[in-house]
């Protein structure tokens, strides 16, 4: 047998406790930003935003009428691919740790799950702000090029309020994806859940509102899609409309997020 020869002075000696600095949140956010795009799926999502956004804006040049050549239309066109992809990025930022099981490493390096989810939320927000800024920039380029090609006056028809609402539209979509990710912690389930809630459910609720008049008044308060469309159109203006947005945000984002965070605190990472 092979005996391990241990220098006698090290056998009893406790290793010296090093003065480790706590991990700073800015560092965690940077790492999370890197993690969003250093996987194959993350890389292609980033590329598809970069490619689809100009294509979408360009298609307006090719297919649109002269009267369509306005800044609002270009921003909406270049932002459309983002409104689909950004929530998926938000979902995967959270669920990857469970579905891909990388959480085993992540949560042993950073045991505080709250901090980790917080860093992911900040990184998601930064990606959202960056992407929407790109949409506005691409839209502006398209608008300048489009009006020159069509020989019409360049129309800058996006007010500050409307721009902020368009921005918020994308951030709310990401927040919903993020909340679904936290509560479901499974990539496939969260993505399916997101598309059910954004594509299937609005139709059902709209139908319900048509056949049951009492629901018609209720719908704007509980239909997530309804308040999203209002944001996209820059039509959230009155206190009541903002309250409706607050109500749907509570139901679809805050509530699942709180439930998810509570269960996540004590859940096993496997």
């Amino acid at each position: 047998m092979t005996a391990t020869i241990v220098p006698p002075d090290t056998i009893e000696a406790e290793p010296a406790r090093r003065t480790a600095q706590p991990i700073r949140t800015t560092r965690l956010v940077k790492v999370e930003l890197r993690k969003m795009f250093n996987t194959r799926s993350g890389f292609w999502m980033l590329i598809s935003i970069g490619v689809l956004s100009p294509i979408s804006a360009g298609s307006l040049l090719v297919l649109g009428l002269n009267s369509d050549v306005t800044y609002q239309n270009f921003v909406r066109a270049s932002g459309f691919p983002m409104s689909v992809i950004l929530p998926i990025i938000a979902i995967l930022a959270v669920t990857g740790e469970w579905s891909q099981r990388s959480g085993l490493t992540t949560f042993t390096l950073v045991p505080s799950r709250g901090r980790m989810i917080g860093a992911k939320a900040i990184a998601t927000l930064l990606v959202g702000l960056g992407a929407v800024s790109v949409a506005f920039a691409v839209g502006a380029l398209g608008n300048v090029a489009g009006s020159a090609l069509a020989g019409v006056d360049t129309a800058w028809d996006v007010s500050l309020s409307m721009a902020l609402q368009m921005m918020l539209y994308n951030l709310v979509g990401m927040a919903f994806g993020f909340a679904l990710g936290v509560v479901l912690r499974n990539s496939a389930a969260a993505i399916v859940g997101y598309f059910v809630a954004s594509l299937v459910m609005p139709g059902i609720l709209a139908l319900l509102a048509q056949v049951r008049s009492w629901f018609e008044d209720l719908q704007p308060w509980i239909d997530w899609h309804y308040t999203q469309v209002a944001l996209l159109n820059g039509a959230t203006n009155t206190v009541k409309e903002w309250a409706m947005l607050g109500s749907t945000t509570m139901i679809w984002i805050v509530l699942p997020l709180v439930i998810g965070l509570l269960s996540l605190r004590r859940s096993e990472v496997k």
Binding site: N38, T39, R40, S41, G42, G96, Q100, R101, S102, G103, L104, T105
Partner: peptide, 8 residues
């Protein structure tokens, strides 16, 4: 095996 399969 608990690593993101899509990372290098």
């Amino acid at each position: 095996s608990a690593q993101h399969a899509g990372r290098t």
